[in-house]
Structures are given as C-alpha cells and as structure tokens.
Design a protein around this nucleic acid. Sequence first.
DNA 1: GTTAGCACTCTTTTGAGTTGAGTGCTAACA
DNA 2: TGTTAGCACTCAACTCAAAAGAGTGCTAAC
Lengths: 342, 342
Amino acid sequence: MELDERKTTILQAIIKNYLETGEPVGSRTISKYTDLNLSSATIRNEMADLEELGYIVQPHTSAGRIPSDKGYRFYVDTMMSEHEKEVEQLKDVLLEKEEKLDHMLKQAAKLMAVNTNYATMVTAPRSKRNTLKFLQLSRMDESHLLAVIVIEGNLIKNTVIEVTESLDDETMLKLNILLNTHLNGLSVEEISLGTIASLKGQAGMYGPIIAEVIDAVAETIKEDEDLEIYTSGTNNIFKYPELSDNQKASDLINAFEEKQLLTQLIDENSEEGSNEIKVYIGEESPIQTMKDCSIVTANYEFGDGMRGMIGIIGPKRMDYDKVVGTIKTIKSQLDTMYKKDN
Amino acid sequence: MELDERKTTILQAIIKNYLETGEPVGSRTISKYTDLNLSSATIRNEMADLEELGYIVQPHTSAGRIPSDKGYRFYVDTMMSEHEKEVEQLKDVLLEKEEKLDHMLKQAAKLMAVNTNYATMVTAPRSKRNTLKFLQLSRMDESHLLAVIVIEGNLIKNTVIEVTESLDDETMLKLNILLNTHLNGLSVEEISLGTIASLKGQAGMYGPIIAEVIDAVAETIKEDEDLEIYTSGTNNIFKYPELSDNQKASDLINAFEEKQLLTQLIDENSEEGSNEIKVYIGEESPIQTMKDCSIVTANYEFGDGMRGMIGIIGPKRMDYDKVVGTIKTIKSQLDTMYKKDN
DNA sequence: GTTAGCACTCTTTTGAGTTGAGTGCTAACA
DNA sequence: TGTTAGCACTCAACTCAAAAGAGTGCTAAC
C-alpha cells in the first residue's frame, strides 16, 4: 500500500489541523475541513490505512488521530514552503543597528523567539583553528599593564596584568615586538615550551610578564572554545500544554539554562551536511530531554572559517513552515553580516 | 493585644513547620511540635489571636494556618540567624579560581542557586561615574585599527575600526597622544561637541577616525550603563508547588529571561541603605510578578565606586536563615575580590 | 468505491457521598 | 483566670458511579 494523492491530502489536513488545535483530529472534522467531499466514514477508512502505514497514531481507541514522528517527517519533507512572505520583515530589524556581535546574537535569538513563539538559541561563532592574530601590551597606569589579544576571526580579549614597577616606553616597545614576532599566527598547540623558554630568556628581567601574557593568550584561545550560547523565548514553552506539565517544563528550562546540554545539538550539527537546515522530530533529537519536541537548526558562516549555530525548539506540532522560514532568514542575515562587521 | 512570649513561640513554630512542609499548619501539630505542653485547644485560642493580629491567615475555614506577609516579616526581623555554619564551605569555592569577572559572576549566581535551591541573580558591577581611564589605538592589520577603551573601574571594551589606507607608526603615535591628552578622565557628559571639533581639527585628515573612536567611547560608556545580569537556578521554581502552576511559573521564568524586569529591583536597591541585606516578602516586592515570592538582595562593592547586586528569589516560605547566610557569604567574597583582581 | 447507521470503546465531566483535618465554641476544671 | 475536653460544624480532597460526548470499526446498502 502506498500513499496516493487522497491519502496525502488527508494526512496533510490532519497534521494542519493538529498543528492548530493540539487536539487529536477526528474523521468528521476532516470530512468537513477538506474540499474532498467525502463522508466521515470514508475518511475513517483512509485514516485506518494511514495508521497502518505509520503516519498517524491514536492516543487511545476512541480518540481522533495525531501525527506520528513519521507523519511529521513526511510533512516536513514534502509539504512545506508556502509562506516565506511574512518573514521579510525580519530582514531589516537585524540590520537596523550595527551592534556588537554579542548584542547582535542576543538580538537574533530574541527576534526568532518573538517571531515564532518558540524557544530559540544562537551560538557565538567559533573557529576550528584558533590562532593569534595580534597582541598588544600597553601601560594602563603605574602598576598595571593591559594585554589585548586578538584571535583569528576578530575575537578580542583583554587582560590586566599587575606589575610591581612602572615600565618605560622603550621596554614596552621591545616587549611588544618580541611577543608579536614570535607568537603571531600560532595556535595554542603551536606555542611550545621551547618557544616560551626562548621568549622568557630574551625578555630578561621581564620574563614573568611574558609568562603572564602567554598564560592569558592560552586562556583566551581556550575560552573561545567553550562555547557561548544565547537563548531566548524559554517561557514560550508554557504556551504548549503538551510541554508544560511540571516535569517536562522543568527539564526543558533546565536544558536551556544549563547551556551545556545544548552542546550535544551543536556537536551533532557542526560536522557534516553543514549548510542545510536540519529538522529533528521527537525521538530523532540528539538531546534526550527534548524527545517530546522538535528542533530546527542551521549553521551560519562568519567568515574566516568561523561558524555558529542557530536553532528553534518547539512542540512536535510546531509550525514547520514558519520556523524554517525564520531560520533561513536569520541564517542569511548572519551569513552576510561579517562582511560589514569586521 | 500584644505578642507575648508564648504567642511568639507558637508563631515561630507555625512558620518553621510551614517552611518545611509547605502545608497549612494545624493546632494539633503545634501542640505536639513545641515543648510548651499545651493542648491543641489552647493553641487554637492563641492561633485565633495571632490571626486577629494579622500574623497568620487561614486559606479556608477548615484548614490550618499559614504565615501572612506580616508573619514572615516578623520572623525575618526577629527570629533569624542561627546556622551560619554550613555556609563556610562556599567561601573557598569562589576563590578557588581567579576567573574573569564575567565567569566569576556567573559562577557566583550558580553557586548560590545550587546552595539554596532557589533562583538567583547577580548583576555586573557598575559605577555611577563612568569616566575614561585609558584609550589606545593600534594597527591590527592593513585595513583595521583596534581601539581599546578602558573605563574607570577597569571595564574594558574593544572596537575595530576600518580604514581605507594603512597608517604609519608616527601617525598612530600622534593620534594616541592626541586622544589621551584630551579625553582622559572625562565622562561622557564632559566630552562636549567643542572638544570633539577641536580634536578633529588637530587630527587633520584623520578626523573621521577620531570621530569613530569617540563614538565608540560614548557607546562603551553607555553600554556599561545598561546592565548585565547573570541568573541561575531558574528551574528551581518548579520545586515549589505554590509557584509552579503554569501562569506563575511562566511569568517568573519570563522575568528572569527578560532581565529588564529585574532592573526594578536594582533601582530600588542601589540608592540608599546600601550596605545592608534587604528582604522583600510577598507584596513588598518591587516586581509585580513576584508578589508570591520573597526576594533577598544585597549590594557588593567592587572598588572605585563600582557596585553590583546579588539576589535570591524563592517562595515566601524560603529558608530565610540560609538564604541570608548565603547572600552574606557571597557578598563578602565579592567585596574582597576586587582587591586581588584589578 | 462510497456512505449511512449502529454498536462499541474510552475519555471527560459531573455530582453525590465519604473521609479527614481542622476549627470555633461552650462548659467544666484547676 | 487560664487551660482543657468535647462536640458540632466546615470544607477540601478523594472516590465512585453514572452520564455525556467524541470517535471508531464494521456491516449492509447504495
């Protein structure tokens, strides 16, 4: 038995209706809802077939049908993309203000949440290859030096270093030249103990300062590696009764707060098939606590091999069209952003 | 009628019991619970008095009593401070690692959440008087300058500025001297249009760069003013049935995510009576959506007139002793932190 | 192939009855 | 005068059965 056109229409109608109401859909509803002009009895026959095929399930014998994961999957794969229209509005909002990256990503997460009424996440872009691009040591006041560390991809960090005595301009210059000539372009793996020892030797009495700077560099690069994640719309979870019973809601909120859990999603997503939009339905989700949810994710590129992820998490009956549209828009905005931002 | 000693004891017993169980407390329970050796009937009489005095209320005629806001208030004001013991453990954890400020505050919020099982918040320290302490312009690569801006209190921001042509070392030096001599120590209000015009004039063809730098300075100072807030333990809300019905939980989670709402708390708290620990019970809360909660807050000093806030939000029947103890500990840790951190 | 109709199933709602915790009040006691 | 025992009363919470309602599967007829 295969899915003929009529079955497809009915399946589509069931899913659409269920997306709207969240209630199991009965045969009579479909009989009136579609323009097939079939009686509820006929629909019942078809629904029995669809159930046998695994596209829909019955929560209990005398209830209507709801889509199974397979049903959603079919819907997502074949029936989507209608209303990419209202998404247009999003485009400008993000561009409106050239914010700091930090703010921009927060903004992106929020924008998606407001637009879709689901929970959303955005990870900061990060690069596989973290090398030192630029390093500057300056005198801030008598007893403090400021080390500015720029990582490939323009991630910038500052560290304040305490010194016991003030350094003169010439020393500062020498230290800067020393550091830059030896360290530029190196990744944390490439900065060997040998390099460090040699640098310290050349710095003479300023060896301890050099050591501190190098520590800071290592820490900065490492820090970049443990990921920043921005989330928004967490409390949208409460809008969907099937997610808002206490245990589930608590688990979900927890996953969003303990952002660590979300990294499973990122790992899953960062490697292959990198440029497409992925849809995880129910049990397909890499995150166990989200098996009652659907997750839509995409990667964005930020130039220089930097990439981040955006994702929307909602109930299985989420509005896939809209979510995919939103993700697409935000993705393309972020994709083009770095060109004007670096 | 006044609160005599016996009434106080009974009130204390009622509150203690209610804190533990979360259920209304009956006269028989108290009769057995305390060592007063009074029958439940006597207790009932006293409880009727306490209710008349407004310290306890009855959810409905045939239920036990629960503390009113006034009752909690009395409890907090008079009966607290017993077990500051177990709090000791916290002290070391924070000191364990000298993290970046950012990480440290996150850590502080989390620590409090884990320790108390309530929701917590920590704001980044900020200063009333935001003046420019140090400004450095450096050449990052051919087409990009890096401006490092240090605000009084060692808040550091970086901005990348795009330039069409590479600048030579001498120009860089001149610009740096120009900027520092004219801007150092000024607040954003003090940098007048006159100052800016004069600077631009002196910079000649590099006027546009100066303008961009000044913009960045203004933005940095302003950005410092819209506050960063770290939260943790949000999902602890679900542990307290009286807060975890859908509407309340949703509102609370929302308040924590839309950190903006929390600023009401900060405004309330930043001005006067600055150095004490404040306890808001129920309706006393400055945040409307938290009127079913209690909030405990304190300010911490970060040197240079910088100050931030820490707070714990939980059900009205929170363990006030423990919460106040935890807040005290974290506060004192943060108070002493800046000395070794700047 | 489609439909009407009916018996059947199962959830949800409703309401009555029961239980149990707790109170207020009164009368008696010390 | 303060304390207590006892009793009638209240009310939320629980249980249980009945009724309602939504929806199905199946059969027979069109």
